[in-house]
Design a protein around this nucleic acid. Structure first.
Length: 482
DNA sequence: TGAAATGTTGGGGCG
DNA sequence: ACGCCCCAACATTTC
């Protein structure tokens, strides 16, 4: 009798789960396991929003497995000890995982594979979290893309893979081995969120997908850039982050939604959203092929920047106390809910790096700690884009004006008023720039701007120009890191 | 997936 | 009627 152990990581679902399906079909007996890895959970990059989402998703996963007659075995400790130990305990012939491309995970999986091999057990890893993997979309000469547009053209030219079936009932009873309880509540691991916006788990993921594809996707071109109460974005990022939703399912349902698009503009909106999914895979393959981006600028010349921003300025940014309404509203929304609209992520990132002149890496770390969907590849890619030091980056001189941006994405100021109560009574013509009404500003008790945009913009341009002029030999953009 | 500075054009007020 | 100026509107360049 062959026993297959499936080790859940970032694939917390039983539908359209490649490695789980392989373990189920190839083995005579399935063991489903999750390892509570303290190294990850104690990392300063992990905060309560994500831990809470993870816990609730695991509870849902456990219930879903039980409803079929399976059982989720939970163990605590270092995976390189826990997984081989459990595999040995249940007499597994093979351990199945879906591949994870972050540097930490790659190293961890290598250690686990070695430890398993020592016991004569094989680690079988599968592609699951992406449609096309790190070395599957390459230029004609076989090098890695570092510009999005040609990457996405090549991505689309490849055939997509379709969902795998949902897990079925057990072929043999699950093993009787100890399983430890999950921590009862995220509060044990940090401060509770003031507001929770994301229902967790597989069912919630599928429902969020269908809700988005029902109508909102057809207005995505416009809706994604405004901050109205009903979000124009898909709200799927935490589900894609934790694998409570499978990417093949997303693609399949997007295609059928696109076929039903009411207008040509609706179809175009579907394509725009698809390109956001491709951005996700673009940044994943950048991280896989150039792991050094996790610790430094993709364009090395930008490593020389002497960031002038102070700790106090960084802390004001984190706390939403910069005196720029759109920035403060966005940062307070993040602190309270663990989520921020993508347009706002760009605005606050530009503001931190180009107005406060604080290193993008400090912002990157803060986002990782606080975001419910915090993902190394996407977050790093976004920050390097904003700072102008990444692949396919915004040119360094592309600097957002926080007021102009705010007027575009929050024309009536309702988003600002919701998150910055000091400005609840601000007249619409100054809600994004209250310093234009000194009398109102004093009365409102809202912070005065901690920097002046036009002045900081000039300093930023000078700062970037200095390192650009100092750049040495030209780099080859598609060489691989070791 | 900008914004500011600078340049050009054309309509209308006015002497 | 004409030229002049103003300036909005748009286009181009620059950061």
């Amino acid at each position: 009798m062959k026993t297959a152990l499936h080790w859940f990581r970032r694939d917390l679902r039983i539908t359209d789960n490649t490695a789980l399906w392989q373990a189920y079909t190839e083995g005579d007996r399935l063991v489903a396991a999750f390892c509570w890895d303290e190294a990850i959970l104690k990392s300063p990059d992990v905060g309560p929003a994500r831990v809470h989402f993870l816990l609730r998703s695991l509870e849902a996963l456990s219930r879903n497995l039980e409803s079929l007659g399976h059982r989720l075995i939970v163990r605590h400790g270092p995976p390189e000890q826990v997984i081989p130990g459990l595999a040995h305990e249940v007499g597994a012939d093979a351990v199945f995982v879906n591949r994870d491309y972050e540097p930490y995970s790659v190293a961890r999986d290598r250690r686990v594979a070695e430890a398993l091999a020592g016991r004569g057990i094989v680690l079988r890893s599968h592609k699951d979290s992406v449609i096309h993997e790190e070395r599957e979309v390459l230029t004609r000469t076989g090098t890695v893309f570092s510009v999005f547009t040609p990457y996405s053209r090549a991505w689309k030219a490849r055939p997509v893979s379709w969902p795998v079936p949902r897990l079925g009932p057990p072929k043999a009873p699950p093993p009787v081995v100890p399983s430890l309880p999950l921590p009862a509540d995220a509060r044990e691991l940090g401060h509770p969120l003031a507001q929770e916006v994301f229902p967790a788990g597989e069912r919630a993921g599928l429902e969020a997908l269908d809700r988005f594809l029902e109508a909102r996707v057809f207005d995505y071109d416009h809706g994604r850039n405004v901050l109205s109460l009903e979000p124009g974005t898909s709200q799927l990022s935490p589900h894609l982050r934790f694998g409570t939703l499978g990417i093949r399912t997303v693609l399949e349902r997007l295609q059928s939604a696109r076929a039903k698009a009411p207008t040509a503009a609706g179809q175009k909106s579907c394509d725009t959203w698809l390109s956001e999914l491709i951005w996700r895979e673009f940044y994943l393959q950048i991280l896989s092929n150039h792991p050094r981006v996790a610790t430094g600028a993709f364009r090395p010349e930008y490593e020389r920047i002497q960031w002038e921003g102070t700790d106090a300025q960084f802390e004001a940014w984190c706390a939403g106390q910069t005196g720029y309404p759109i920035v403060d509203a966005a940062m307070r929304c993040l602190a309270a809910t663990g989520w921020m609209h993508n347009r706002l992520r760009m605005i606050v990132a530009m503001f931190l790096t180009k107005d406060l002149l604080v290193s993008w890496q400090r912002g990157e770390r803060h986002f990782m700690r606080t975001l419910v969907d915090g993902d190394l590849a996407a977050n790093n890619g976004g920050w390097q884009w904003s700072a102008g030091c990444g692949t396919d980056a915004a040119p360094y001189f592309r600097i957002f004006n926080p007021v102009t941006q705010a007027e575009k994405c929050d024309p009536d100021g309702s988003f600002v008023r919701r998150w910055v109560p000091e400005l609840r009574d601000a007249p619409s013509d100054c809600v994004h720039a209250p310093w234009n009404r000194p009398l109102f500003l004093t009365k409102s008790r809202y912070a005065s701007p901690i920097v002046q945009h036009d002045i900081q913009r000039g300093r930023c341009l000078a700062m970037y120009q200095a390192v650009k002029g100092a750049s040495t030999e030209p780099r080859t953009p598609d060489t691989l890191d070791e």
